[in-house]
Write a protein that binds this DNA or RNA. Structure first.
Lengths: 336, 336
DNA sequence: GTGAAAGCGCTAACAG
DNA sequence: CTGTTAGCGCTTTCAC
């Protein structure tokens, strides 16, 4: 372990000087700066994280709490986590991975130990028990997701209500009259995760406003459940000409089933997905979709949390506007 | 911030006593232990991570280096990461998330700063440039994956060569004669990631030994590429009656295409996948598969790294034996 | 523009 | 079984 003191000796300056060239908190002559930097380079010096945390009361670590096993689509979680990690490095911060199952104890542990300077919390439930703990703590925090009562907290999320509405609008614009939303699994609605319910509400309201007849069915995403739901929908309302899919796992089965039943997409049936762009682009045909801005949410969360570390009050709700991209899976309903 | 000193005062004992009840490094009378624990509880004390790291030279953090964007299947990466995190907590360790793109600089930074006690490295390439750095460092490390030269390092991985062989065996046992391996994308083979090449080798050798005619095609996993590869295989060798799929993304398209072309699985065509159990179980029909033991690898990696922190030499290669589970997608070839 | 020195909160000898 | 105390390596006044 090479220490700051050794660097100082090697450079022929005092320890505090070395500290200051590192922190840029006071001006240093070009000459000494160079000497110090040379010494750092030569010795391969890296400041001891613990010592720094102790003296400065800043760990330069952000805690990220992710779902251990959730109904959320795994690639989205991963993309958010990677975006958070990448963006955090831009601020010189590292990321500590916590699992949601540590729950409030995890939050208390982090806040109490100074292990992290701030927290980013994913997979937020409407009435999440971590929220009160976060509120009473003075550790800056940002939620990715929207709880029932966001008062006193900072949140980022896709505007799912607007997302549902955008899907209804697009299909109404194309001239569809009977549409169906294939949603997330039952569990997602029951666990009171906000996004699924919000999407549904936005979809139904806008559908009503636009004079569409809208159905909704929860879907677990397996081949079997998708098949069952599809056939039930088509039985109950054979005039259905368009589907909105929210559960990413249901996309491959749905496309496969439509093909099998001889319904061409988009000629006979339109499909609009709510999914990451990558999924929409990998499917065949490429899907018209509202993209889940996973990377954007991750980056924003970091920026928001860093702003709080700079003194920002940290009470804000950022809802990212949905972006619907028209691709090959949606078209006007066939004249038949 | 409540400190150990405050706890000591509240409990009417000396700071070191508090420290020792926490570390259990010397025996404490039941009476004092109770008083201390009560004080800790009452004050909501959590040891300061930085201070502890500085004084003990142990951060209680494990660094986990994950691929930022890889050709690896995302859910597998995620499952490993979650298993590592969960198992680490069993040892009182937290997990720091690093991205592979930090490369050797990342490794040096962590080793030099004492931020983590040890490293777990994923997405290892055959000739990974992080390996020499890991070797010269005295930071314990475990690779998840198998490099060309594992000398002096600890590694865990699925035994992919045996995996390829197991697939060939299963199909040979069923009586198939013409089989094809639908592999990973070109990039995976070119980046010199070991697992794809090993699987192929194991498959080809065993196929030859068992008198099978084996084909192999790389596959990007999109619907189009899968369609192209499938039709080329069936054109070049129409007698092909079984497929082994290594690229998880190719599974849904493959099943969909087989259905479309009227080939029933498993009556006309057998499919064996190399994928997490969950994927095999979600497909229809449920797939005969060799499971990717993501959780097992993550847990093992943690145990191995912890053993090194206890003094283990840390030179070992653990190859987990493949487990092939027969489900509904494989059967003897039709008599035709 | 630079140095000296006092902690930050904890661990681990050493002493009893 | 318990207490005293000297650091761990860094940041940050205070002083020049």
């Amino acid at each position: 372990m090479v220490t700051l003191a050794e660097v100082a000796r090697q450079a022929g300056v005092s320890p505090s000087t070395v500290s200051y060239v590192l922190s840029r908190k006071r001006s240093i002559s070009d000459d000494t700066r160079r000497k110090v930097e040379a010494a750092i380079e030569a010795l391969g010096y890296h400041p001891h994280a613990g010592a720094r945390a102790l003296a400065s009361n800043r760990s330069n670590i952000l805690a990220l709490m992710v779902p251990l096993r959730s109904d959320m689509y795994v690639p989205v979680i991963m993309e958010i986590a990677m975006a958070v990690t990448t963006e955090a490095r831009e601020y010189g911060q590292d990321v500590l991975l916590l699992t949601k199952d540590e729950g409030t104890r995890g939050v208390r542990r982090i806040a109490g130990s100074g292990l992290a300077d701030a927290m980013i919390v994913m997979d937020v439930e409407l009435d999440d028990d971590r929220i009160p703990v976060l509120r009473e703590t003075d550790t800056p925090a940002v939620l990715i997701g929207l709880p029932a009562d966001p008062a006193g907290l900072a949140c980022v999320d896709l505007d799912f209500e607007a997302t549902g509405a955008a899907c209804a609008d697009h299909l109404a614009d194309l001239g569809h009259r009977d549409v169906a939303l294939i949603g997330e699994g039952e569990g997602v609605y029951q666990r009171h995760t906000g996004f699924a319910a919000l999407t549904l509400r936005g979809f139904q309201r806008r559908a009503a406003e636009r004079g569409l007849r809208a159905m909704h069915r929860a879907c677990e995403g397996t081949y079997e459940s998708t098949a069952g739901i599809l056939s039930r929908i088509l039985e109950e309302r054979p005039s259905t000409t368009a589907f909105v899919v929210q559960n990413e796992s249901a996309i491959p089965p749905l496309l496969s089933l439509l093909r099998l039943s001889g319904r061409a997409v988009p000629e006979d049936t339109s499909v609009v997905a709510i999914c990451p762009d990558q999924v929409a682009l990998q499917s065949s045909p490429r899907l018209t979709s509202v993209s889940i801005p996973a990377e954007e949410m991750g980056r924003r969360a970091v920026r928001m949390v860093m702003a709080q570390l700079e003194g920002d009050r940290g009470e804000s709700v950022t809802l990212l506007p949905p972006i619907l991209t028209v691709r090959e899976s949606s078209a006007p309903p066939s004249a038949s």
